[in-house]
Amino acid sequence: MKCAIIMDNGFEELEAMGPIALLRRGGVDVDLVSVHDDHVTGRFGVTYSKTTPMKDYDFDAIDCLIIPGGAHAKKLEANPDVLELIKKVANDDSKVLAAICAAPTILGKLGLLKGKDYTCFKSMNEDFGGNYHYQYVVEDGNLITGISASAAEEFGFAILEKLTGKEHTDEVKASIYYDAAH
């Protein structure tokens, strides 16, 4: 399995790092893709210095596209290449589209949440034509949405389970002593 996480400067670090670490721990390849350069810096100054510029990346080879939230969401929303990529992935039944916090609003503005169950950062929710749920993670088919940075771990596990199955995900959870009840 292969995921690409797309970022521009200002991404929310926890929403990127959590899923990256959990997916890699679970044996999923995760490629870091920046919109412009070979590096990208998050909201709190964490820089990923080995990213692949979007123009050089083969998105046809992925099983999942992950979009973290943060201030970069406005930049992603204003980028026609990113919007085309999101639409392409959303319309491919063989691919998973995962967005967290502010990022699901991009999908909503593209009309991709119509008739879907979803979540996003509560104050950013608009009438996107779908069914908003105030919970950590919501899945609807191949769409996975997360509410905020506090949901990064649950979001990462939801993606892992969608890609590799519940049994494997439970093994990864056990390897880090994950207990959802505590």
Results as ranks from 00 to 15, higher is better:
residue 1 M to G: 10
residue 2 K to R: 15
residue 3 C to K: 05
residue 5 I to M: 09
residue 8 D to P: 05
residue 8 D to C: 11
residue 9 N to D: 14
residue 10 G to V: 06
residue 11 F to H: 02
residue 15 E to S: 08
residue 18 G to H: 08
residue 18 G to F: 09
residue 23 L to W: 05
residue 25 R to C: 03
residue 29 D to Y: 05
residue 29 D to E: 12
residue 30 V to Y: 05
residue 31 D to F: 13
residue 32 L to P: 01
residue 33 V to T: 15
residue 34 S to Y: 05
residue 36 H to M: 06
residue 36 H to C: 08
residue 36 H to N: 07
residue 36 H to P: 01
residue 38 D to E: 13
residue 38 D to Y: 09
residue 39 H to Q: 08
residue 41 T to H: 07
residue 41 T to W: 12
residue 43 R to G: 09
residue 44 F to A: 14
residue 46 V to S: 04
residue 47 T to R: 11
residue 48 Y to N: 15
residue 54 M to C: 02
residue 54 M to H: 02
residue 59 F to E: 00
residue 60 D to M: 03
residue 62 I to Q: 07
residue 64 C to N: 11
residue 66 I to Q: 06
residue 67 I to F: 02
residue 67 I to Y: 02
residue 68 P to A: 00
residue 68 P to D: 01
residue 70 G to Q: 09
residue 76 L to H: 08
residue 78 A to T: 11
residue 84 E to V: 09
residue 87 K to H: 03
residue 88 K to D: 13
residue 89 V to K: 07
residue 89 V to E: 02
residue 89 V to I: 12
residue 90 A to Q: 02
residue 92 D to I: 12
residue 92 D to Y: 06
residue 93 D to Q: 04
residue 95 K to V: 13
residue 96 V to T: 13
residue 96 V to G: 05
residue 96 V to C: 15
residue 99 A to I: 00
residue 99 A to F: 11
residue 102 A to G: 04
residue 103 A to V: 05
residue 103 A to G: 04
residue 104 P to K: 05
residue 106 I to C: 00
residue 107 L to K: 04
residue 107 L to S: 01
residue 107 L to M: 08
residue 107 L to Q: 03
residue 107 L to I: 13
residue 110 L to G: 12
residue 110 L to T: 08
residue 111 G to V: 08
residue 113 L to Y: 02
residue 116 K to M: 07
residue 117 D to Y: 02
residue 120 C to F: 06
residue 123 S to M: 15
residue 123 S to H: 14
residue 125 N to W: 14
residue 127 D to A: 09
residue 127 D to M: 10
residue 128 F to T: 08
residue 128 F to M: 12
residue 129 G to K: 02
residue 129 G to V: 01
residue 130 G to E: 04
residue 132 Y to I: 02
residue 132 Y to W: 10
residue 133 H to D: 05
residue 134 Y to L: 05
residue 137 V to H: 05
residue 137 V to I: 00
residue 138 V to L: 03
residue 139 E to P: 01
residue 139 E to T: 13
residue 140 D to Y: 13
residue 142 N to R: 12
residue 143 L to I: 15
residue 145 T to H: 10
residue 146 G to V: 07
residue 147 I to N: 11
residue 151 A to S: 14
residue 152 A to Q: 06
residue 152 A to Y: 10
residue 154 E to Y: 15
residue 154 E to M: 13
residue 155 F to E: 00
residue 158 A to I: 04
residue 161 E to F: 04
residue 164 T to R: 11
residue 164 T to M: 07
residue 165 G to K: 12
residue 166 K to P: 00
residue 166 K to I: 00
residue 167 E to L: 09
residue 168 H to E: 00
residue 169 T to E: 05
residue 170 D to A: 15
residue 174 A to I: 06
residue 175 S to D: 07
residue 179 D to Q: 14
residue 180 A to N: 09
residue 180 A to I: 00
residue 181 A to E: 11
residue 182 H to A: 12
residue 182 H to C: 09
